[in-house]
Simulated scan of single mutants.
Amino acid sequence: MLQEAVSNVLKFHSYLQLRTDVRVKDYPLMQSPIQMTSILLAYVFFSVYVGPRLMANRKPLRLNTAMMIYNLGMVLLNAYIVSEFLLSGWGTTYTWRCDLIDVSSSPQTLRMIRASWLFYFSKFIELFDTLFFVLRKKQSQITFLHVFHHSFMPWTWWWGITLTPAGGMGAFHALVNAVVHVIMYFYYGLSAAGPRFQKYLWWKKYITAIQLLQFVLVSVHISQYYFMEKCDYQVPLWIHLIWLYGVFFFLLFSNFWVQAYIRGKRLPAADVKPTQNCSASEHITVVANGKHLENGHAQLNTNGNILLGKVKEI
C-alpha cells in the first residue's frame, strides 16, 4: 500500500510538471510544490513550536528600526506590484468584466505574469511579520488564524499561477490586495516609528473599513460571472473559490466591526500596545488575501503552544 501511495504521489508530481505553464516554469519556487510546501511547513513549525521555545528564556529584542525599514520596503514593493498590474492589463486593456485567462506570450502578457509571480513571492516575504512577533516575544499575536493565513495564502497562489499565471478576472483580488497592503504597511511603519507618531494613527479604525471595502470589491467583481449572458472563463473553479473567500471574510469582518466599533468592546489596557503590524489599541484581525489582522486572541500555555481564545477587537 505504501509503495502504491508513493507511486501515485510521483505520478501526480509528474502531472503537475507537465501542466505547469511554460511561461512561469523558470521562476523561483515554481518548479515543484515541494519547495514552497517545505518552506511553509517550516514556517508553521517555527512559529508554533521552535520560536516560542527559542525565546522562552531570552529577553524580547527591540527591532523598531528593522521593522520601519521592513514596512517601508513592503510599501514600495506593493506599490510596484500595483503599478505593474495596472500597466500590464488592469489599467490598459482589461474590461474589468469577463477578462479571460490569457494564454499568449505577448510582452504585455509576460509583464502581467511577472506581476502575478511577484505578488505570490511577496507572500513569502510577509512571513517576516511572524518572525518579528517571535523575536519580540509577542506570541499572543500569533493566533491560529495568523499562521493559517500566512501559510495558506502562498500555498493556494502557487496552484493559481502554476496553471493560470495570467488569470484575467480571477486575478483582480490580487490587485485590490496589493493596494490595501500599501496602505496597511504604511500604517504599520508609522506604528513602529514610536510614540511620537501615535498622533498620526487616528485613522486606525478605517483600516477595518478598507478591509471591508476590499471584500466588497472582490465579491462584486467576481459575482459578475454569474449574471453575464456569456463568459467563457476557462477555469470556473477559480471564480467559485474567490467568491466564497470574499464573502466569508466580509462576514467575518462585519462581525468584527459590530463588536469593536458599534458595541464598543475594547481591549484591556494591558493589551493596548503597539506591535509589529498591530498598532496601539489594535489586537489582531484577519484579512482575506490581505494583511493578517486576525479576528482572534491567542495565549501561550506553559509549553508554549498556541491556544485560540475568544474574539477580540482591533
Rank of each mutant, 00 (worst) to 15 (best):
N177V: 01
T93Y: 10
R196Y: 11
R196W: 11
S223C: 12
E4P: 00
P236D: 03
R136C: 00
N8C: 00
H146Y: 13
W158F: 14
V24Y: 08
S83Q: 07
V176T: 00
P28M: 13
S88W: 05
F227I: 11
T275Y: 07
L63G: 01
L241F: 07
S47G: 14
Q31H: 13
G160M: 10
V272H: 07
R114M: 09
K312I: 02
V286I: 13
V75G: 06
A66P: 00
V24R: 06
I262L: 14
I69N: 04
N64I: 01
T302R: 15
G160D: 01
N71M: 07
T143R: 12
E84I: 08
V44C: 12
R19S: 14
G264M: 07
A193M: 06
V247K: 10
R114Q: 13
I242F: 04
L100A: 05
V6M: 05
F132K: 04
V6A: 09
Q198M: 11
F46K: 07
T164C: 12
R111A: 15
I81C: 09
V182Y: 12
S122I: 03
L163H: 10
V220E: 08
P236G: 04
L237S: 06
A298H: 15
Q214G: 01
V147E: 05
Q17H: 06
V176H: 01
P107G: 08
G91V: 04
H149Q: 11
I239V: 15
W203H: 09
L61R: 15
I125W: 10
I101G: 08
G304K: 02
S151Q: 02
Q214C: 01
N57Q: 14
I314N: 05
V182K: 12
L300A: 01
W202H: 11
P107L: 11
P33K: 03
S140W: 04
Y80C: 10
D232M: 08
Q17N: 13
L76S: 07
S279N: 12
L252R: 12
S219V: 06
R266E: 14
G189Q: 08
A209T: 04
D271T: 02
S83A: 10
K205P: 00
V311K: 10
Q259F: 09
G290K: 11
T109S: 15
T93K: 14
W96H: 12
V75L: 06
Y120M: 03
F253N: 11
I142T: 14
R58Q: 13
I183S: 08
I113F: 10
Y49S: 08
Q276G: 01
L237Q: 10
L267S: 04
L29R: 08
M36R: 07
R62N: 05
G167I: 01
A5Y: 04
V44Q: 03
I222A: 06
P236T: 09
S14W: 02
M1Y: 11
N57V: 09
L76F: 13
D271V: 02
H240V: 12
L118T: 11
V182H: 10
F85T: 11
Y233F: 15
Y43S: 10
F186K: 06
K204Q: 02
F85R: 11
F128Q: 02
S14T: 09
Q35T: 09
L251T: 04
L127R: 12
F152C: 10
E229S: 13
